[in-house]
Every structure is written in structure tokens, then in C-alpha cells.
Design a protein around this nucleic acid. Structure first.
Lengths: 273, 273
DNA sequence: CGAATAGTGTCTGTAAGACACTATTCC
DNA sequence: GGAATAGTGTCTTACAGACACTATTCG
């Protein structure tokens, strides 16, 4: 019987069945959550990786994560991991499930299912290393060479397990979600200027956007941003007006990436065969 | 050591670590795949459910699924389940991962992680019951009452486990994917008419679409459909031209749902808190 | 003042929705 | 011919991209 379930048996027979149920016959498997933590660093999309201090893949870099505790939902485990790795809760940023990766041989120790999440965070200081990791830092994603048509930079880390694949899926999804959700606002502070928001799009998509049209599109999308009626001055140039995230969950019309229009042959995420 | 892994240890020390690794300390958990099989029946979006013949939730209806075998990737398990339940492979239709549901108490027997998939299939005869299910049939989704603002019909089935929640997420996602992918073509035969394709959109979205504008949009979206230069006659009226699915994976411009434009407050899928 | 950055106005092509109209079949 | 369904043409409005222009600050 599962001690966390509040299921009410419909009969004594069913009550007996549940109390006698023996789960020990299942082959041992582990379930982890991995959290792909994105941020914008120096105008580039960056992702948090931790250096592995133990076997296997010792010295390689991995997406931070850990085992799901018996009392936890996967969502709760993801929030916990995020807090442990960054010191931030979900009050800051945004967290959502990406998908589950469970190929039989993806971990050399045993069968491991990785329920992967993505987090989108404002710029953070590099975190302290966790207990089972000898280092932790953000890496610019286009230095990792995980995307088609890109090559790793000189000092690119070796990635553990199937984490290159997970990162590829996460980056594709983040780019797509920027178009039709207010996700970009998770990368900036609570109040932000439109040029700051535009630089988020430019960093994630790797393209320059015409500032005038970007501005018009953002302001004409209901609920995307609301003005705060203050300005900030960035040392030189005209001060920019401040905005706050609006209450829209989906953007209409969306902010389309210049790349999307040419993407008739682009692969959709996650189709099975 | 995981017998399905082709990982090569970097040292004798690591080789020893892996050979002595004992996975039996993990608490027993099970991992299943559930496949939400959608089709269009009588102009309505319908989903395949199986009646449970054993405890728990005996007599309730469930999304078909089963355990992931030790040698299988979750994708492979989903393909196998789909074939077992419908007799169809992925050559027909479309299959993709939806997400993982793993609340601690969702199954009263033990901790179970359900890696859920969605399949989109052309209209099928009602399947034969599987071995552990006393019945199997398609149900119109808007008779189930799983969506906000809808109420179950008179004879709506009781849903097992958290399957109402899984269905809700699946329907939301299917509706959204219809807009920007050629998913609708998975619901029709290999060759189809534009009115047939339009009725797919109408069934999934639950709205009527102006035929003239639908036609123009579909034909002006590159790679969505390609003409076959044949016609079919449906007993009365002018025969319709046949088309085949094109090679686009993403639609540009998308086929927007009339509902989407009013959806500024609509909830995005899967945000964690 | 000039450099730098923020923000506005305007023109053009394209796409969406509305809807009137034509075409081809069955009876 | 009439009913039924498929398909075309056209008008209006709205948005995307391009790009010239104005505004506000620092030094």
C-alpha cells in the first residue's frame, strides 16, 4: 500500500488487495529531476552546469539535479533542486517541465529516468559548488556545441550522460516559447526597460531585432507589459521607461522570431519516429 | 552495473565502482507509459479509454498504458502500447511525449511515475478489449467533463487515478499544436480533402470555421498540403480535390484558432507554481 | 556641441475576416 | 431546375518589416 495515497477502497476485498500489495518485485530504478537553469549573461543565453566530482563521468559537466524523494511530487523536487542550486525560489523566474528521458543505458549504474525541467532566471552570480559537485558555473549555450550547425568552443566542457540531448531539446523549446509566452520577462528584473527585454530576445534567438518594431509589437500585445511611469538612466543616452510584466500568459499577437518564418523544414520537438 | 549501457569506464577504479554498484537500495517505484489516443469521431474529438477489470479503480476508465520494460526506452514502450491497443503503428498517425505525472499518492498501490504520450489517429473501429481491461472504446472528450466550464454527460465514465488531469493537459496541448504544426493531417487518411481537414480543426477546437478563409490559409501555408490532382465525390454536391500532407513540420503562417485571440488570460501549460 | 541611446511616424506588402459569388455534382 | 457541397474573388482592417525622423541624456 502506498502511504501517500488518500484513495478509499470500495470494498473489503479491495482493502485486502491493497494492504497485501507487494511493490518489491519491480526491478530497481531511480527517478531524478534535472533542472536546466537558463539565464542571460553578457548578452548571451547561458545555462548552469555542475562539474561531477564522483563516478561516473567524473570531471564532466552535468545539468544539476537529484533524486526524487518518496514524499515529493516531481514538481516539488524541481523547486527544491532549483533552490539548492541557485538559492532562488520560483517567486523569481519561471519553472516548467521539459520532458522525461529514460533510455535504458543512459546511466551506466542502473536504470534512471530523468524528469527534466527548465528554469528561466534573471542574471545571477556564479553559485557555490554543491555537495556532490566540485564546481558550478554558467556556460554560454552556443559555446557548448550542442545545437546543429554549431561547434564547441575551445574550452567547452564535456557533458555527462545524455545531457547534451536534454540541453538541445531545452534550448529549442525555450526559443519557441519566447514567441508566444511572456517568458522573456522571467530573464529580467521585476521592473525592466524595453531595450533590456529586447536584448533577452536577441540573446536567446542569436539575432538582432529592429528596436522600433520590437517596441511597437510588445506594446501592442495586450497584457505583455505594463508601464511603471519611471525611467532609468544607463550612464549615457536618453533614459528608458520602466515596465513590469503584465498578466497575459500567452501573447497575441506573438513576438515572432525572424528565424521562424524560414523554418518550414524545421524539426518539431519530441516527435517519436 | 547497468547491462544496457555502453559506457566505457575511464579507469580500473571506475570499473570497480560500477561493477560493485548496488541499485537495490532505492525505494521500489514503477514507471509506466500512458498513451492518450485521440481521433475524430462523428465530428467530435474523441479519446480511447479502457475499463479497468482489476483493483484499484475497478470499473473506472483509464488511459491505456503499461509498465516500461527494462530493455525499453519510454518512446519504444509508447509505440508498443499504441500497437497493442489500436493495432496501429506510428506509420499511421503521430506520437509524442506529453509529460510525466508523478505525485506521490497518485496510485494507491505504490509510487508510480506515468510518462504520458499523446497519439493522433485517423478514425478507427472500436478496439477489442486488452487482457487487463474488460472494455475499450472512444469517448467524445466534451462528454467527459474534464475541461473547465464543461460538465460530464449523463453516461460519462468515472476516470481512474489522475487521468482526468492528464486528459486536460493533453487536450489543451492538442488544441495548441493544431495551430502551428500540421498535426491535423494525422487525424485524416493519407489523402484527404480540405473540407475533411477543416472538420478536424472544427472538432478539436469546437468551433465552426469559415470554409473560404480556411482554404486560403491552408493553401498559402508552404508545405502544409500538396495536391494529388484527383477528386472524390461524397454522394451529393461538387466533388472535392484530394491533397496529401506536405513536408512542413511547423506552419507559417499558423492556422490560428478564433479562441486564441481572446486568450490573453488563458493558462499556459505546465507552469510550476 | 556631438555621441549615444530611447522612442515616434510613416510607408508598403501581406495576411485575416467577412461575405458575395461561381462551379460541379446528385436528385 | 433545386439542393447541396466545393471553390473563387474582393473588400476592409490590421499587423510586419523597413527606415527616416525626433527626444533626452552625458561629457
Amino acid at each position: 500500500m502506498n502511504p501517500f495515497s488518500d484513495y478509499v477502497p470500495a470494498s473489503d476485498e479491495e482493502r485486502r488487495y491493497l494492504s497485501e500489495y507487494d511493490p518489491s518485485g519491480f526491478p530497481p530504478v531511480a527517478t531524478t529531476v534535472d533542472v536546466v537553469c537558463f539565464t542571460i549573461r553578457s548578452g548571451r543565453l547561458a545555462v548552469l552546469l555542475v562539474e561531477r566530482g564522483g563516478f561516473p563521468y567524473k570531471g564532466a559537466w552535468a545539468i544539476p539535479g537529484g533524486f526524487v524523494e518518496p514524499s515529493e511530487d516531481t514538481d516539488e523536487a524541481a523547486v527544491r533542486e532549483l533552490e539548492e542550486e541557485t538559492g532562488l525560489g520560483t517567486a523569481v523566474g519561471h519553472l516548467e517541465q521539459l520532458g522525461t528521458f529514460g533510455a535504458p543505458g543512459r546511466d551506466p549504474r542502473m536504470r534512471v529516468f530523468s524528469v527534466s525541467y527548465m528554469a528561466f532566471l534573471p542574471d545571477l552570480p556564479d553559485p557555490e559548488a554543491g555537495s556532490d559537485a566540485s564546481g558550478a558555473r554558467f556556460w554560454a549555450v552556443d559555446d557548448l556545441g550542442v545545437l546543429e550547425g554549431t561547434t564547441p568552443s575551445e574550452d567547452a566542457p564535456v557533458l555527462a550522460f545524455d545531457h547534451a540531448e536534454i540541453l538541445r531539446v531545452a534550448i529549442d523549446r525555450a526559443r519557441a516559447k519566447l514567441e508566444y509566452t511572456p517568458l522573456a520577462t522571467a530573464f529580467v528584473d521585476e521592473t525592466f526597460t524595453l531595450p533590456e527585454l529586447r536584448r533577452v530576445y536577441e540573446a536567446v534567438w542569436g539575432t538582432e531585432l529592429p528596436a522600433a518594431n520590437f517596441r511597437r509589437k510588445v506594446l501592442s500585445t495586450p497584457g505583455f507589459v505594463t508601464p511603471v511611469n519611471e525611467t532609468v538612466s544607463e550612464s549615457v543616452g536618453r533614459p528608458a521607461a520602466l515596465y513590469r510584466r503584465g498578466d497575459a500568459r500567452l501573447l497575441h499577437p506573438p513576438i515572432l522570431s525572424p528565424h521562424t518564418k524560414r523554418a518550414a523544414g524545421m524539426t518539431d520537438e519530441a516527435e517519436v519516429r
